[in-house]
Amino acid sequence: MNPPNSQSNYAQPPYNQAPATGFPVSAGYHHQQTKANQEWSTGLLDCFSDCKTCCITYWCPCITFGRIAEIVDQGSTSCALSGAVYTLICCLTGCGCLYSCMYRNKMRHQYMLNDTPCCDCLVHWCCESCALSQEYRELQNRGFDMELGWHGNVAQGSRGVAMAPTAPPVVHMSR
């Protein structure tokens, strides 16, 4: 047993971090983490600051959404596939926001952005075009060339993202 004032060999978690117990983290710790989130680089209603994006998003939101989804998914889905799924959901339900709000949520968590002015689903439900335009501008302001897509940005190195490492060469050993 350790004396009361001696140092333990076990690392202590930082003051504001929950101890690793294997149990779900209480809401108090989650609330502390969300306070450190960043503000969006532009406001939700700043959609008219970029007329080109605003017009594309208003008349054909599947293009804007597809580009956002490709970047947020880090190239695992293509712009065309995401845009097609968005269009299909719009045609079947009339509510593309059912799909696009999930990507806003994913993007917010990737970049630690605040959920302002309200929750993601409500933002997309009330103003789909403004929400998509804000997400598009946020990614542009973070250095992405949205027209290139994920793989084009990686190849160009516009964000300093290194290419995925390749497998090491196979070395054949003989006896």
Results as ranks from 00 to 15, higher is better:
Ser6Pro: 01
Ser6Ala: 15
Gln7Pro: 07
Gln7Met: 06
Ser8Gly: 04
Asn9Val: 11
Tyr10Phe: 15
Ala11Lys: 14
Ala11Ile: 14
Gln12Phe: 11
Pro13Arg: 09
Pro13Lys: 02
Pro14Leu: 13
Asn16Tyr: 13
Gln17Met: 12
Ala18Met: 00
Ala20Asp: 15
Thr21Phe: 01
Thr21Cys: 07
Thr21Pro: 01
Gly22Ala: 00
Phe23Pro: 00
Phe23Cys: 04
Val25Arg: 13
Ala27Asn: 08
Gly28His: 00
Tyr29Asn: 01
His30Cys: 03
His31Lys: 12
Gln33Met: 13
Gln33Phe: 14
Thr34Leu: 05
Ala36Glu: 06
Trp40Ser: 05
Trp40Arg: 06
Ser41Ile: 12
Gly43Glu: 02
Gly43Asn: 01
Leu45His: 12
Asp46Trp: 03
Cys47Trp: 05
Cys47Tyr: 14
Phe48Glu: 07
Asp50Trp: 05
Lys52Asn: 14
Lys52Glu: 05
Thr53Glu: 06
Cys54Ser: 10
Cys55Ser: 08
Cys55Glu: 08
Ile56Thr: 02
Thr57Arg: 00
Thr57Asp: 02
Thr57Met: 05
Trp59Ala: 09
Phe65Asp: 06
Gly66Tyr: 01
Arg67Pro: 00
Ile71Cys: 11
Ile71Arg: 00
Asp73Ser: 12
Asp73Ile: 07
Gly75Asn: 03
Gly75Ser: 02
Ser76Val: 01
Thr77Gly: 04
Thr77Phe: 09
Ser78Asn: 02
Cys79Glu: 13
Ala80Tyr: 06
Leu81His: 06
Leu81Phe: 09
Leu81Arg: 13
Ala84Lys: 12
Val85Pro: 10
Thr87Met: 11
Thr87Val: 07
Leu88Phe: 07
Leu88Gln: 03
Cys90Asn: 13
Cys90Gln: 11
Cys91Ile: 12
Leu92Asn: 08
Leu92Trp: 09
Gly94Arg: 04
Cys95Val: 15
Cys95Pro: 07
Gly96Phe: 04
Gly96Gln: 05
Leu98Ile: 12
Tyr99Leu: 15
Ser100Lys: 02
Cys101Leu: 03
Met102Tyr: 14
Met102Asn: 05
Arg104Leu: 08
Asn105Ile: 04
Met107Tyr: 03
Met107Leu: 14
Gln110Thr: 05
Gln110Met: 09
Tyr111Asn: 06
Thr116Gln: 11
Cys121Lys: 03
Cys121Asp: 02
Leu122Phe: 15
Trp125His: 08
Cys126Glu: 04
Cys127Leu: 10
Cys127Gly: 07
Glu128Arg: 02
Glu128Ser: 13
Ser129Lys: 14
Ala131Gln: 00
Leu132Gly: 00
Tyr136Asn: 10
Tyr136Trp: 12
Arg137Leu: 04
Gln140Asn: 04
Asn141Pro: 03
Asn141Trp: 08
Arg142Leu: 13
Gly143His: 01
Asp145His: 14
Glu147His: 10
Glu147Arg: 06
Leu148Pro: 00
Val154Thr: 00
Ala155Leu: 02
Ala155Met: 11
Gln156Pro: 01
Gln156Ser: 08
Gln156Asp: 08
Gly157Ala: 07
Gly160Phe: 05
Val161Glu: 05
Val161Asp: 15
Val161Gln: 14
Val161Gly: 05
Met163Cys: 14
Thr166Met: 12
Thr166Leu: 14
Ala167Arg: 08
Pro169Met: 04
Val170Cys: 10
Val171Asn: 10
Val171Tyr: 00
Val171Ala: 13
His172Lys: 10
His172Val: 14
Met173Glu: 09
Arg175Tyr: 08
Arg175Met: 02
